[in-house]
């Protein structure tokens, strides 16, 4: 069926509207980060900077708290990602391969953990971690992130495990390989794309996370990047929007790199996990 010219025109108008709604905020953020302080204060702002000026970026990177926040965020995200993969791999294997009684329980837990408001969890968590001297520490936040990105990681990974042909494992066990051996040398290599995708999602969710960090980290030395950025905004009045915009762009870079990498697989891979899981 041919699309009529008027319909076509309307479609393009609609696409244009979407592009502006979705893209303009990003364009503005990036262009703000490249404007000189003088241009920033101008009463008639222009969409693109008249002179590209990187001083906001150098200013942001000279800010002590910001660099420290970046380092803290990186550390926490990397550690919790590694932990999640170690824990999620065997569980998702068991979920996909065995029909044990733990499966409905685990799926129930995944569901419940999505429905419950975090405020209910964060108070007891705080009360558990405090006597263990784990509030206000990086390991404390790491294990909390590990547990709370686990549901999504399991949900993704078990779909990938289910896609690995069972015959390969049977062949290995006929050849006398133990279950562990089969997992390590047959399943894991085939799971590489799934493991990478899961790792990225875990990393990003830790990198972007705000609420648990806000409650668990009070020490300014330990604050993650989102906390540092949020505090900058809070200090309205003397807030410098230029460096803040630059820091915001920097904070988004890791996620953008990962998403650029994942983009093609996202529609198919993520949802195949959902359907097969």
């Amino acid at each position: 069926m041919r699309t009529r010219p008027t319909t076509r025109a309307l479609q393009y108008i609609a696409v244009l509207a979407y592009l502006i709604f979705l893209g303009f905020p990003l364009l503005w953020l990036i262009s703000s980060s490249l404007k000189s302080p003088r241009e920033f204060a101008s009463v008639t702002p222009s969409i693109l900077p008249k002179h590209v000026d990187f001083s906001n970026y150098t200013d942001a990177l000279n800010e002590q708290g910001l660099v420290r926040g970046l380092g803290n965020s990186l550390q926490i995200s990397v550690y919790s990602t590694i932990l999640v993969l170690i824990v999620a791999l065997p569980v998702s294997y068991a979920l996909a391969r065995f029909r044990s009684r733990l499966r409905p329980l685990t799926n129930g837990w995944i569901l419940v953990s999505q429905v419950f408001p975090v405020i209910l969890i964060v108070i007891p968590l705080f009360m558990i971690l405090r006597p263990l001297h784990l509030t206000n520490t990086i390991p404390g936040v790491v294990i909390v992130y590990m547990v709370w990105s686990l549901p999504f990681a399991l949900w993704m990974l078990q779909g990938y495990v289910a896609a690995v042909p069972r015959e390969l494992e049977e062949a290995a066990s006929v050849d006398g390989a133990s279950r562990l051996r089969t997992i390590v040398s047959i399943v894991m290599p085939l799971l590489r794309p799934g493991l990478i995708a899961t790792a990225m999602f875990t990393f990003i969710s830790a990198w972007n996370e705000f609420f648990f960090a806000l409650v668990l980290l009070q020490d300014p030395q330990l604050k993650t990047l989102p906390l540092v950025l949020a505090r900058f905004v809070g200090a309205e009045g003397q807030v410098q929007f230029g460096p803040l915009a630059a820091a915001s762009v920097l904070a988004t870079v890791p996620s953008l790199v990962f998403f650029a990498f994942l983009q093609r697989r996202l529609t198919s891979g993520l949802l195949s996990g959902a359907v097969k899981g």
């Binding site: 979407y18 705000f210 950025l229 904070a251 996620s255 998403f259």
Partner: peptide, 17 residues
């Protein structure tokens, strides 16, 4: 691509923007 970017951004950065 544009439709995916908001998803990747930290909520704090979205709010600042």
């Amino acid at each position: 691509t544009l439709a995916l970017i908001p998803w990747a951004m930290p909520p704090v950065v979205v709010a600042i923007m």
